[in-house]
Computed example of a mutant assay.
Amino acid sequence: MPSIRTAGPVSIRPMHSEDIDAVMKLAQRSPGSPHWTRGNFEQFEEISAVVLLAECEGQLAGFAAGSLVLEVCDLESVVVAEEFRRRGIATALLDGVTAWSRERGGLHIELEVRVSNHPAIALYERYGFVRDGVRRGYYSDPEEDALLMGLTFDSAGSAVEKNP
């Protein structure tokens, strides 16, 4: 597990089983976040996966989930509570998942994001992710395409830029 990291007044730490209810409540409050059950979160403890929490001002401000298969990390979700957005929390969570993945030999992170989620796409592009394609009709409620994005690292851990 990554150690506790601090980005300004934000601390990042791994989720524990006693955190699941609060994480589920945050996910339910956030439009477009995954509709995961308690079992989905508990399953993260059984596979090569992580859920990291961001805490700010004594409150749960966000979470990120990722799973690793061989050298590919699937960034499952990044959720930040509306009242804590635009404070660098999503970037701190991305840093945490990236570090977790790299510590386990991850060389690539991939994700899907709604094509209409322009703030998230901009965040991922600033972070170094590149657009890899589109998955038609990937999301439901409402139905929408997913933009596929990826970030590749070399063996030294530096991001590898792809040609557009």
Rank of each mutant, 00 (worst) to 15 (best):
S67G: 09
V78C: 00
T37F: 11
A27I: 01
V80S: 08
Q43V: 01
S48A: 13
E46F: 04
L94C: 04
N40E: 09
G106V: 08
V79F: 11
R86F: 05
L70E: 05
A90P: 01
E103L: 13
S48C: 12
G96L: 04
T91D: 04
Q43D: 06
S48F: 04
E55F: 00
A54S: 01
V69C: 05
D95A: 09
E45F: 15
M24C: 13
L52T: 10
L53I: 12
G62I: 13
L26Y: 12
G105N: 05
E46G: 00
I47A: 01
A90G: 15
S48H: 13
R87Q: 15
V50Q: 14
V79K: 10
E76L: 15
F44M: 10
W100P: 07
D21F: 07
Q28N: 02
K25L: 14
A92C: 11
C73K: 08
D95I: 10
R38I: 06
R38N: 09
G66M: 13
L52P: 08
R85H: 11
G39T: 09
P31W: 05
A64R: 05
F63N: 08
A64Q: 05
S33I: 00
W36A: 04
G39V: 02
I89M: 01
S67M: 12
C73F: 07
A61I: 12
F63G: 07
F41Q: 02
A81S: 14
G105M: 10
F44I: 05
G58M: 02
S33R: 01
E83H: 07
I89R: 02
C56I: 00
L52D: 05
V80L: 10
A99R: 11
A99T: 14
G106D: 08
R29D: 15
L93K: 15
V79Y: 11
Q28M: 03
L52H: 05
F84R: 02
R38T: 11
A92L: 11
E42L: 15
S67N: 13
L70Y: 13
A99N: 07
V78D: 01
Q28W: 00
A64W: 06
W36N: 07
D95T: 11
R29L: 11
V50M: 14
E76T: 10
E45V: 07
G105A: 06
W100Y: 05
E76S: 14
F44K: 06
L52N: 03
G58C: 04
N40Q: 09
Q43P: 01
C56P: 00
V69L: 07
E83V: 15
S101W: 02
A49K: 09
A22K: 11
A81K: 04
A92G: 09
S48D: 12
F84C: 03
M24W: 05
A22P: 04
I89W: 04
M24S: 14
V78P: 00
Q28I: 00
E103Q: 14
Q43M: 08
E71C: 09
K25N: 11
V78E: 00
L93Y: 12
R86K: 14
V79Q: 07
E103V: 08
G96T: 04
E76P: 01
S33K: 01
G32S: 09
F84P: 03
S30H: 09
F84K: 02
D95F: 13
A81G: 15
A90R: 00
F41N: 01
W100S: 04
